[in-house]
Structures are given as C-alpha cells and as structure tokens.
Design a protein around this nucleic acid. Structure first.
Length: 271
DNA sequence: AATGAAAGCAACCGCAGTAGT
DNA sequence: AACTACTGCGGTTGCTTTCAT
C-alpha cells in the first residue's frame, strides 16, 4: 500500500493564503462535526486544501480562544525564561500561555524577543567586556546550555517545579488541540473567526459529509465537548453543558443559533 | 510620491512520534 | 516486528506591510 502524500498538488490542492470563504467552510465543518480526521476533512468540508493545511489554519487562527498579538511584559518575560529552559520546544512553551499558539510565539521570538536578548547581550558585553569568562555572562551561559536541554526529552522544566506565576499553569491550561463548538461562546474572537462563525448560520452546503458524520446527538456533542474543552472556564461549563444539553444543537440551525446565544450570554457575564 | 530595505507574519515542508493492523 | 496512516512539531520560506530615504 502506497501512502499518498498528505499535501499534494497533483490533485489540484490549493496553497497559500486562506480566503474568508474557505475559513467559513472550515469553521462551519469543524464546529459541526469536530476534527474526526484531518486528512478526510477537506473533502467533506468542500475545501481544496490538504488536511495539514486545514489543521494548521484551525489551530493557529480559527480555533476559539486564540489570542493575537498584544504580548504583555509578563508574557514576554515568561517566554524568555521558558525558552532558556526548554529551548526551541515551541509547543511546550505555548502550553504555558492559554490562547497563544506555538507558531505565533515562535514568530514573536524570532522577530522581537531574540533581538531584545541579543541587544542585552551586546550591552552587557560592552559594559563588562566579559569575553573570556562565562561566569560573568550568565545569560550567554543559559543560551549555551539550551542545546543540551533541548536534546534531553526527559529534562524537567525547573520553572514548572517552582511555579508561582499565574501566567504559567501548564496543568490547568493545556493547549487543547481540539477546541470546538462550545468555545465559541468564550472566545476572544478575531474578526475573521467571528465573521466565519456567524456565516456558519447560512451555510448548509455540506454535501457528502452527511454519510460519514456522526448524527448530532446529545452524546456526540457532550462527549466531544467535555473531552475537548478542558480549559473552558469553570463558570462557563455549566452554562454550556449541564443546562443546555437539550438546547445544544438539536438541529443544525438551532445549534448555530445556540452558539450565538451562548456567545452573547457569555459576553454578558463579563460586562 | 516612489522605491528599496527591513520587519512581521501566515503558511508550507519534512521529519518524528504514535496508534492501529 | 514491520508496516501504514495520521498527527504534531519545528524550521523555513515567501508574501505583505511598514519604515526609511
């Protein structure tokens, strides 16, 4: 059996920037059916994309609760600390920052933080002229040890051992790979995602997926929801799950209306 | 206003890890 | 144990935007 490439142009798959229409289709599909198989998903969602591309788009931009930009000083300091201890393990670093993606943190590191550190190093070198003793260059020393740490998968993150920062709560904030429907009510929506989500209301264009998708039932949504949304704030869970199982998606249109209602309710909680 | 350089960012690619058979 | 199918990760690319001249 020959494995077909996950990403291939031979079948005319599209590459490059995602259009709002593609976003809408992806959000609509994942919102309704979840990510049961990324490789098959584009076919059923009506997308001329490879599964990998769909996954990336969802994970980095369309997934609910994504935070974009506006890094706080505390976040940046923590990224630097974590990078010193974890090296380039961006997903591990991102796990400490709810709503941040590994890709964005990686980009932020390369475009901002790395330069900042380099400047500090340069300044430090100028002031101390510590060219021959690493004992006098602790930051440099830390960077030098990164490779060693990076190569040791069993390395225990010292920051995790004695973690006092509220920003860093690896256990309580795993970066869920599969946030779904219910998170829509708690997400900090970027404009694209919001547009896409709202547009879902009008999208009934899925074709052959019906044959493959799970029927929408309480179990389907409950199980998916509970499994995939461990980081939904506790006070939202009852609103979304316990009280609203019936209310939750008895039909597609009602489901989508529910999302909007829940989103509005959630917004109301914080006003 | 035009243009080239630099910075920022979204997306792609290839590899590693893992589950299933 | 060997192989396939799939997911996830990190490195990298290249397009777009911003800035400087």
């Amino acid at each position: 059996m020959v494995r077909t490439p996950v990403c291939s142009d031979r079948s005319g798959l599209k590459k490059g920037t995602w259009t709002p229409e593609e976003d809408r289709k992806l959000v609509a599909y994942v919102t309704r059916y979840g990510c049961w198989n990324w490789r098959q998903l584009p076919k059923f969602a009506g997308l001329q994309r490879c599964g990998k591309s769909c996954r990336l788009r969802w994970m980095n931009y369309l997934r609910p609760n994504i935070k974009r930009g506006n890094y706080t000083k505390e976040e940046e300091d923590n990224i630097i600390k974590l990078h010193q201890s974890l090296g380039n393990r961006w997903s591990a670093i991102a796990a400490h920052f709810p709503g941040r993606t590994d890709n964005e943190i990686k980009n932020h590191w390369h475009t901002k933080l790395k330069k900042r550190i380099q400047q500090k190093l340069d300044n430090h070198d100028e002031k101390t002229e510590c060219s021959n003793s690493e004992d006098h260059c602790p930051l440099q020393h830390n960077q030098d040890t990164n490779a060693e740490v990076h190569n040791n998968k069993n390395h225990v993150d010292p920051i995790l051992i004695n973690q006092s920062s509220t920003q860093i709560q690896a256990d309580s904030w795993p970066l869920s790979p599969n946030s779904s429907l219910s998170d829509l009510s708690s997400m900090s929506l970027d404009s694209t995602a919001l547009t896409s989500t709202n547009s879902v209301l009008e999208d009934t264009s899925f074709g052959p997926l019906e044959a493959h998708a799970e029927p929408i039932s309480g179990n389907f949504w409950t199980e998916t929801f509970m499994a995939e949304n461990s980081y939904v704030p506790n006070d939202i869970v009852p609103l979304l799950v316990i009280e609203d199982l019936e209310y939750f998606c008895p039909t597609y249109e009602e489901e989508l209306l529910s999302q909007n209602c829940l989103y509005e309710e959630y917004q109301g909680l914080f006003q």
